[in-house]
Structure formats: C-alpha cells, structure tokens
C-alpha cells in the first residue's frame, strides 16, 4: 500500500464522516460547513483517482459548482441581500 492509496482512503473517510455529521446535525445553518468539507474531500479524491491533467479541470468545476450551491442555499436561507 503506497502513499496515494493512503491519501485516497483518508479522503474517503473524511467525506463519509462529514456526510454522517451533515445528516445527524439538527440546525440547517450548521450543516453547510460540513457540506463544504464533503466537497473538499471529493475534489481531492477525484484528482487522486485519475492522474490526468484534465482531472484538475474537472475537480475545479466540481468545487466551484458545489460552493455555488451551498452559497445559494445559505443566501436564500438567510433571506436575500441586505441592501434592499
């Protein structure tokens, strides 16, 4: 077992732990940071799974998309922009 396998396993464990925390958390606002942790871990494991230059583009696209999604949920939950 060499080091990329260990890193990949770590990413998987972090993602699963954060997912369990998201499901178990009661408060909606506290779920969102753990969702970001999930997206970090998944982006890392995408890059580690395939050693290819395009994998970096794909991981960046997933990261941007996931951040946009959680930002939109948080912004809607808080009730829109302040200066209105």
């Amino acid at each position: 077992m060499n080091w990329p396998d260990i890193a990949l396993a770590l990413c998987g464990i972090i993602a699963l732990y954060a997912a369990v925390r998201v499901v178990l958390e009661k408060d909606t606002m506290r779920k969102l940071p753990f969702l970001n942790v999930v997206s970090f871990a998944i982006s890392g494991s995408i890059i580690l799974l395939i050693p290819h230059p395009l994998a970096i583009v794909a991981a960046a696209a997933y990261f941007v998309g996931s951040t946009l999604e959680s930002n939109a949920i948080a912004s809607k939950y808080a009730g829109g922009p302040k200066n209105e």
Partner: peptide, 10 residues
C-alpha cells in the same frame, strides 16, 4: 431568484 450569488458575476 433574488440572492447575492446570482447578482454577482456567477
């Protein structure tokens, strides 16, 4: 939809 993310350049 009237939220901050949409009003930026995203």
């Amino acid at each position: 939809l009237n939220i901050e993310v949409i009003q930026a350049d995203a």
